[in-house]
Computed example of a mutant assay.
Amino acid sequence: MATHSSVSLRPGEECLEEPLWLEENARLCFIGRVRTPWGPEDCPGNIAAARATGQGARIELADGMERGLVGLSVGQPMVAVYWMDHARRDLIVQAPRHCDGPRGTFALRSPHRPNPIALSVVTIRAIDAAAGVLEIDALDCFDGTPLLDLKPWLPTVDAPHREQTE
């Protein structure tokens, strides 16, 4: 199995034999950057832990993206989709410290995955539409993390379906 060049594997972890990102079939663009107080040594492990610190975050859109904020309002929940650009992309089985054993990457919210896409539901605290800036409640990523997309969180669309039981 292939291994990431700079980090050793934990017991039970496995890497992809041939990383999928070697194919150039996707064309993504970053619409901005996330500004947080976090770096590699102190970044919270998830959005709940980031919120617990009381540290907010800021989204700074790339030039030309400002008009995409039209219609948003303070207090509105948003889905932030971001690219964990420092994450490993070769792990297919991981051994997180908080689990009782190895788990498949798709059974985890870990940033280490073939496509290191993360998402969190955040709340808008302030909007500077002219500057293309959103102040949000928190985010669990390094300062400068690339932003892929923003979408409004809609309870009629985004809340999971629950089967009726009698």
Rank of each mutant, 00 (worst) to 15 (best):
A2P: 03
T3W: 01
S6K: 14
S6N: 13
S6I: 11
V7H: 12
S8K: 12
S8E: 14
L9E: 09
R10Q: 11
G12F: 12
G12D: 10
G12E: 09
E13Y: 08
E17N: 11
E18N: 06
L20K: 00
W21P: 00
L22T: 12
E24V: 00
C29Y: 05
F30K: 00
F30E: 00
I31Q: 02
R33F: 01
V34Q: 00
R35Y: 00
R35H: 06
T36D: 00
W38E: 01
G39T: 03
P40V: 02
E41I: 03
D42M: 01
G45C: 03
G45S: 08
G45A: 10
N46L: 07
N46Y: 08
I47K: 04
A49V: 05
A49N: 05
A52S: 11
T53A: 06
G56P: 02
G56H: 03
A57Y: 01
I59V: 15
I59E: 01
D63R: 13
D63C: 08
G64W: 09
E66V: 09
G68C: 02
L69H: 01
L69R: 02
L69F: 01
V70A: 14
V70Q: 13
V70I: 13
S73I: 10
G75M: 15
Q76T: 12
M78C: 08
V79Y: 05
V79W: 14
A80K: 03
Y82S: 09
W83S: 07
W83P: 09
M84E: 13
M84N: 14
M84P: 05
D85R: 13
D85T: 09
H86L: 13
A87V: 05
R89T: 15
R89P: 08
D90E: 15
L91N: 01
L91V: 02
I92F: 04
V93E: 13
Q94T: 08
A95G: 00
H98S: 13
G101K: 14
G101M: 14
P102T: 07
P102M: 08
G104H: 13
T105I: 10
T105H: 09
A107L: 12
A107C: 11
A107N: 11
L108M: 13
L108D: 05
L108E: 07
R109Y: 15
R109V: 15
S110D: 13
H112N: 15
R113F: 12
R113H: 12
N115D: 11
L119M: 14
V121K: 10
I124E: 06
A126C: 03
I127T: 05
A129E: 15
A130V: 14
A131P: 06
G132T: 11
V133G: 02
D137G: 09
L139P: 05
D140C: 11
C141K: 04
F142V: 10
D143P: 05
G144M: 07
P146M: 02
P146Y: 03
L147R: 07
L147K: 06
D149M: 04
P152T: 15
L154E: 10
D158N: 15
A159W: 08
P160N: 05
R162D: 04
R162A: 12
R162C: 09
